[in-house]
Design a protein around this nucleic acid. Sequence first.
RNA 1: GGCCCCUUGGUCAAGCGGUUAAGACUCCAGAUUUUCAUUCUGGCAACAUGGGUUCGAUUCCCGUAGGGGUCACCA
Length: 545
Amino acid sequence: MNTQKLAELLFPDVNGTPEMLEKRFPERKLPAGAVVTRIGPSPTGFVHLGNLYNAVIGERLAHQSEGIFYLRIEDTDEKRKVDGAVETLISAMQYFGVQFDEGATADGDNGNYAPYRQRQRKEIYHIIAKFLVQQGKAYPCFLTAEEIDAIREEQTKQQENPGIYGKYAEANRNLTLEEIQQKISSGLPWVLRYRAELSDETITVQDAVRGKISMPKNIMDFVLLKSDGIPTYHFAHVVDDHFMRSTHVIRGEEWISSLPMHVELFNTLGWNLPIYCHTATLMKTDDGKKRKLSKRKDPELALAYYQQEGICPEAVWEFLLTLLNSDFEEWRLANPEKDYHEFPYSIEKMSVSGALVDLDKLRDVSKEVISRMPAEKVYSALLDWCRIYQPDFAELLRKYPERSLKALNIGRTGEKRRKDLENWKQACQFLNFWFEETFIQQDAMPEEISESDRKLFFQTYIERYQHSDDSSAWFAKVKEITQELGYAVKPKDFKKHPDQFKGSIIHVTNMLRIALTGRANAPDIWEVSQVLGEEIVLNRLKKFL
RNA sequence: GGCCCCUUGGUCAAGCGGUUAAGACUCCAGAUUUUCAUUCUGGCAACAUGGGUUCGAUUCCCGUAGGGGUCACCA
């Protein structure tokens, strides 16, 4: 077989050579040890946690080493393509604070290794494909889906491994140039297959997170180009990561099984293998069993879920970091004020087994993250979220900026910070008492206090209320009233002699809090009163007379 | 089924031949705080299993079981 002629027959319009590509996409000039890596999502319109998970790893490795982190759109599957998916993806990544140095943008490309959408790289793949044909390492295959099914059926029956290899590939491997020419001119569709050799050798790859992985050498005549001339993932991965000069390939562990194909291609083409980092799959429990997160059953797999719930990007990021590097939490404890970007991330510290997504843990991380934010930041982040998901509340935040800011600032200064905000959705609920428009009487008054005692208390309190009292003067007054009306000033006294008091100061302050905020859980009463203002305070109290 | 990956409390996890087997989340109890949220103290709770190697295995080797992945002209 004259492979030169076959190559011309298959790719008559391809004139480039691998050498030309090497020149067009030169080695990057970066400091030693710089990591070049990427995420390569498919534009299916569904952005999931796993995308972010791998993005976080790549972004950290690249930017900690003065390297490059880029976005490549892997859109080789026509069937799964969804309009607008690239925009969705980019905006989601932006929302979660993932910064790309180069790659696909909403309306084009940014960088010297463009194009960054695989469909637009067809000519590049074809140059390499033609080269492989010339080398006798690839051939056209005319097998139909039915024929392949039949082969697989036979193989299953014989308990052999399914696939196109060895004798099952012979029919199409050994076609003469004339036969091929005839089939093509009669319009038969074909795919380009890699010509593998049968072998019982094993290959070993040094995976950066798992160590040595040994597998049987590839013997499959796997598909390089589909019948529409677009490459499969395997071919595109090898070509792109070579010419985009990736140093690290970070991807889910589901790719481990196709490693032999990739290694085979890199070797055949004489290219250096990138450093592979196969990450663990995100899991979840179901009926006590661990299982892979599923798109259909688990809303928390979608990144959009975290946006809708108003879980702030920093919290999601820190949560992922706790899963990714076991010492992140210790570091965070030791450096409460530092930005998470300062945490020294490393692949070696990564876990190899699939981590469960624990929403309780996320909530805890989130509370912590929000408690560290200054009031201004909480205000603007909350407002941004509300604009999209709770426009009515956004309206109020904008209408009363001063009050909102003061409200958010309570318990946010000094050492002991309030941790009552979990996420923006919950925050809207929690903060609704600050505005007359959203105030609701959520919790009931303590049952232990009779209605007449309650009225007497509010009457007394209103009579003596001085809005200008400072915190200690105010509290002294509360104690005074407490005592006069027959409540225990010290909760312990009431505990010891419940028959001697109407209740304790806890009941008194509870009544006040519930009247002022509509609920039992709220910040300091005096501070709340100061922020609400005299008029609102008195109005709310008078309802209980 | 073949091939591959994984296995320390409910969860995330330290550990890398000798430890009372850390820590965090959850849960429970107590303390502090004018209520909550906090904070503090304490508690529950783990090396899947069987063989080796070794003076000694959670740690090293082999098997078994369990979980997961993959076997497409999908990524």
